[in-house]
């Protein structure tokens, strides 16, 4: 049986990942290259916000201190956010956004596939529903990686640059720290390190279709799970949390 604090952190990390990438994607709304793309990015954002709501509500329930999903989303600062560094990276151009989504959605697809088998039914139920959503996101992003990689010279260069920007944040996705290990040992969490081989295979397959080279390995950027983020997250939070901070106690 895992400690409540372990499961709280475990749920929080899942919720924070979805929340921050959902927030990032929603910045695109109204500004995408075509209406169809606009709609599809909004779809992904909506799914992610929905997942965040479920995982953060679960975290709040496990914690048992009366914090609901909104309290967790809107009233924590950078040091208490536990998302991976990848999801907080700026949208950049469309290729950079797609690179982020591609790397992250394939990770989420593998993760939720496993988490749906969790002994803890609360996690399993959220993951089972989310698994279908993120499988679609992974396909959508892969299709764009192929189109952009094997499109024009410009799109290829941009797709390559997008991957170069995001690649240093990949290793963090698969790190198993003490929280992950304890959650896994209790039969609740997933052995993320064990997902890496399948992830590599998926990514390499798509990059191959896209005629793109896999970026070179490099020293991983880590820290997100412990609240040590890039400079970007503070700005994401200050925008997202503005109303809750400016009008404490108000109900919306």
């Amino acid at each position: 049986m895992a400690k409540a604090s372990t499961l709280f952190t475990y749920a929080l990390r899942l919720g924070d990942d979805s929340l921050i990438i959902g927030q990032r994607l929603s910045e695109w709304c109204g500004h995408a290259p075509t209406i169809e793309v606009d709609l599809s990015l909004a779809n992904v954002a909506l799914d992610q916000i929905g997942q965040a709501t479920h995982f953060l509500a679960l975290a709040g329930a496990i914690e048992g201190k009366g914090r609901d999903a909104d309290a967790l989303a809107f009233k924590r600062d950078v040091l208490d956010f536990t998302n991976c560094l990848l999801v907080e990276q700026p949208n950049g151009d469309f290729a950079q956004t797609i690179a982020r989504q591609f790397l992250f959605s394939h990770y989420q697809a593998l993760l939720f596939g496993e988490l749906a088998q969790s002994k803890d039914e609360r996690f399993a139920a959220i993951a089972a529903k989310a698994a279908k959503e993120v499988a679609y996101h992974a396909n959508l992003a892969s299709d764009w990686v192929v189109r952009l990689g094997d499109g024009t010279d410009e799109s290829r260069t941009r797709m390559d640059q997008g991957l170069q920007w995001m690649w240093r944040f990949v290793d963090e996705l698969f790190v198993m720290d003490e929280v992950d290990a304890a959650a896994q040992k209790a039969g609740v969490g997933v052995d993320k390190a064990a997902l890496r081989a399948a992830w590599d295979q998926r990514i390499d397959g798509v990059l191959n279709d896209a005629t793109l080279a896999r970026p070179a390995s490099r020293r991983p950027a880590l820290g997100g799970r412990k609240g040590h983020h890039s400079e970007h997250l503070g700005h994401v939070l200050s925008e997202m949390q503005f109303l809750q901070r400016a009008y404490p106690g108000a109900v919306w």
Binding site: S26, A52, D70, F74
Partner: peptide
């Protein structure tokens, strides 16, 4: 959208 006051309102607006 990025400044919606809670998660429910954010999802509805999006």
């Amino acid at each position: 959208i990025t400044r919606a006051p809670n998660l429910r309102r954010k999802a509805i607006l999006l």
